[in-house]
Write a protein that binds this DNA or RNA. Structure first.
Lengths: 249, 249
DNA sequence: GCAAAAGTGTTAGAAGTACACCCATGA
DNA sequence: TCATGGGTGTACTTCTAACACTTTTGC
């Protein structure tokens, strides 16, 4: 499922990895997708897909996910977590997908089990580095509802989101992977709101973050906004881990 | 990874499923393992493994897990949930495992990615139906600490347990899959204690279950115990789902 | 009657929820 | 001076945690 050429032997043509990379622009969650161009019945079509590809023979799944994401988007040192394998035998039922893939892979493709990975990143990290070169684009989840992606990638993204919600409850620190190093209380709050899908009371929220020692208020404030400037905060991972250890014995 | 013969084409020799089936005997969690006999350097060895096998060509992963578990243990209609794929390339590093597998599969084996499934069941369900015929045995988690299983199956079980803890927080009803239809408060409490790994106060616990409408007290009590007889309870799934829907909007 | 496990209530502190107004800034 | 979003406190409810004795039963 990739556009570059392989210079190593594939494990086989049956196992792939796909990466759901999520970012947050201060208002919405967005997913990083690649543009795909194919030809079917003599007609050219354009659509999108998750970054993903078949794995090499001597490659751990985790390694494969990191490699593939790097090859397809240029991103490095991304924290990827495996969240689910997709192995329905009709995930390659659309001939369009199969033909596209066989052309890209230069070999016969039958059934593919894919192992899906999730990554939460600061959205500017990827945007700055010429995503256009890679034919990559951030797509908001709202926009996604009216897009049909390649293979079962719509399903994979849906499952990624339910995974995120659960995951975040156990590991709040994951949220801060989505925010810039300096962030305002409002940004953090709307991130909560997007992920949990409900409104959060402003006053209670301020009370809450005031109690979390690992959310450290800075002196610095917003500049040049047409209203009272918001204070910046930063996330202190060390303090977070200390507190986490205390709680869980 | 199985002992019976295949009468359908394998998807390939690179994808398998493994099932972690957990039961609860009133005191401890136990995992269902199969006895394995192999030969290495002319020496016969005996050890144990999870029920698991390679998948067929036209089989969903979920279907494969159900089929394999049935073939290897005789169990039917078991609720299986996929929890993680294991794809380290050194999970088949032990020649003992590779040789055993090649003999069982009657073909060359290279690298295998396995998709692991979890099932929580009433322990008597499997015990009654002649597990001995299948060379299967319930092994307590404590006992497991001093056993080295085939492949990376010790790791898979460890990951299954961390998954269970998280899973149960989101779906309490999973706990009742482990208990008999009628159970005492003490049984339920020690199940909580085993899974969360900490003591729970008896009085607070009674207060708690009294508030959960879906844990229904029965008139029936224990018989023939040398102390005050405990009341039986049952789990009402309908009431549970109703309450769950209310909570989550 | 004694050993063994079942069952029962109260209180204090922590955490969560609901709710409305003033503040700082740029245009 | 006004429009915009930022920031603050109090009262009430709910949840959690700590804690010790009486009841029932078989032997």
């Amino acid at each position: 499922m990739q556009n570059t050429l392989h210079n190593q032997p594939l494990a086989n043509n049956h196992i792939s990895v796909d990466c759901v990379v999520l970012g947050f622009d201060g208002e919405q969650l967005k997913v990083l997708l690649l543009k795909r161009m194919g030809e079917e019945h003599g007609e050219v079509f354009h659509d999108m897909k998750l970054p993903g590809s078949l794995i090499y023979m001597d490659e751990d799944l985790d390694e494969a996910a990191a490699r593939v994401l790097n090859e397809l988007t240029g991103m490095k040192n991304v924290n990827l977590v495996q969240f689910k394998a997709f192995g329905s035998n009709n995930r390659t039922k659309d001939p369009k997908d199969v033909h596209w893939l066989e052309r890209a892979m230069k070999q016969k493709v039958e059934r593919i089990v894919t192992v899906a990975y999730l990554s939460l990143i600061k959205i500017d990290r990827a945007l700055g580095k010429g995503l256009e070169d890679y034919q990559a684009r951030w797509v908001s989840l709202h926009e996604l509802q009216s897009l049909t992606l390649a293979f079962d990638h719509n399903l994979i993204i849906r499952e990624a989101l339910t995974y995120v919600r659960q995951h975040v409850e156990f590991n709040q620190s994951a949220l801060f992977d989505l925010l810039p190093r300096k962030f305002t209380a409002a940004q953090l709050r709307s991130l909560y709101e997007v992920i949990y899908g409900r409104r959060i009371d402003v006053r209670n929220f301020h009370k809450k973050i005031a109690m979390m020692e690992y959310i450290v208020p800075l002196e610095e404030k917003e500049q040049g906004v047409a209203h009272r400037a918001a204070r910046y905060y930063r996330f202190d991972k060390k303090l977070y881990n200390k507190q986490r250890v205390k709680r869980n014995g």
